[in-house]
Nucleic acid binder design. Structure first.
Lengths: 243, 243
DNA sequence: CGCGCAATTGATTGATGTCAATTGGAGTGG
DNA sequence: CCACTCCAATTGACATCAATCAATTGCGCG
């Protein structure tokens, strides 16, 4: 096993802005507690009051909400480098759970250290704020996908987004990436039934734009898929700019 | 016409935390440019790079996205006291438009002044960050509503949320408030067709939980409506706590 | 009075959910 | 190596929800 570091976070932030040496040092000095989770484990529970924020090192996590009648909705996916639970820092009471969608590694950073860091380096504070704003942008696109896109376009949009995000952190290349999600989890992401996800997946395969076997996804024609999805990556803010 | 002030913002922040006299003074010193809009006007355009953030003083605004085939989705509603477009401060390029859903008054605060203020008072910076996190929580609930709630429960949930938010800023009382939205706008919020919104509305009226004529909404039995909706107001963070 | 927009209605089509099997593959114990 | 089990993927039949199309009604306003 490799030694876990906050490298994924630094890399994620450097996609959006330039970090000074001092800023990188401050991040690297953050105390970490690394923990491994198995698919299905609850990492942060709805209703809890976390005193540390968690960041994904490997694998996939999801924000999960339940309705009173027990239906599950996954409102957002997170991957390596994503500071999933900055919310707890200010929101205090979790309005949703964070769950392991695959086996994954997560690291916790105490709130007090984050507070200290953003006091010492307000620019880093703005970048953390930015990352929660991007969460919001991702969620807006999910809303539009559920409300106004066909199930096929919605699924295609999700694939485009995941590819661009994974490529940015070095987990996708040449259209290929690993997506260890069951169709049940996809259904809870897209707001569809399992059966319908299965059929939508088959339709998408039939277009020839995507090859998907097991957890191995290969986007054959990204531009074609993006056109089908109406995907415009601007909202992911993957451009370097002073913030 | 009354003289516009940033009172609604101060009130909104004070629902979540205590402000010092100095902090209130800093807010009151912010330069404002007030503008009126008519229903349908675009306040901030998708793709633009705003140099000022806008805050709603009266009326309703919405975040709007369009799909490639011209369908419209409203991803979030805003009302008096909501700092709608803090996003532009860090996101730079707008990923959505902000539109007047009713006639409304909006004030603009230049980014440079906001930056200066949160440098002088980091606590205020955290509270603005908080307000964008609450936007995220609202959007998560919208996702769950679209994906996993019945159309009736989804509509009921929206009403509960609007009531609680409006009551917090003094625009609702005894279950009654003014909601000047057309059924077409409601459809674009809920991700449904106009016809289906109309029928869902009728069902909801038939339960007797709500009376709704024109823009006058009266919630007869809030608890009953909240139960139907599966509504839990925690996510709105309307509790005072050091942040 | 008549225009225009929003609300409402009815009929129909299409999309999606539900129910119930069946298939396929990976791991496990004999 | 062969059952056997478990879980995920897939399929078919059917029911239900929601969209679409096309009028019609109702209301505020010039």
């Amino acid at each position: 096993m490799t030694i876990a570091t906050l490298g994924p976070l630094i890399r994620a932030l450097e996609h959006r802005d330039v970090l000074t040496v001092e800023e990188r040092t401050l991040i690297e000095a953050l105390p970490m507690t690394v923990r491994g989770y198995r698919r299905g484990d609850v990492i942060v529970a709805e209703g809890s009051r976390p005193s540390a924020s968690c960041l994904v090192l490997s694998g996939f996590t999801g924000r999960v909400q339940f309705t009173v009648d027990g239906k599950r909705q996954i409102t957002e996916l997170h991957m390596s480098g994503d500071f999933v639970d900055l919310h707890g820092l200010l929101l205090r009471v979790m309005d949703h759970s964070v769950v392991a969608l695959s086996d994954c590694e997560v690291t916790f950073v105490p709130h007090e250290n984050i507070r200290q860091m953003i006091t010492d380096a307000p620019h880093l504070g703005r970048l953390l704020w930015l990352s929660t704003l991007i969460d919001g942008a991702i969620q807006r696109n999910a809303i539009t996908g559920m409300g106004r896109r066909s199930s096929e376009a919605h699924l295609a949009h999700l694939l485009c987004e995941l590819y661009v995000r994974l490529e940015a952190v070095g987990l996708a290349e040449d259209g290929r990436f690993d997506l260890p999600l069951t169709q049940e989890q996809l259904a809870d992401i897209l707001g569809l039934s399992i059966v319908h996800v299965n059929r939508t997946l088959q339709e998408l395969r039939r277009t020839g734009l995507v090859v998907w076997q097991g957890s191995a996804v290969a986007i054959i024609d990204f531009d074609g898929l993006a056109e089908l999805a109406g995907f415009d990556p601007v909202y992911l803010n993957l451009f370097n700019e002073p913030r």
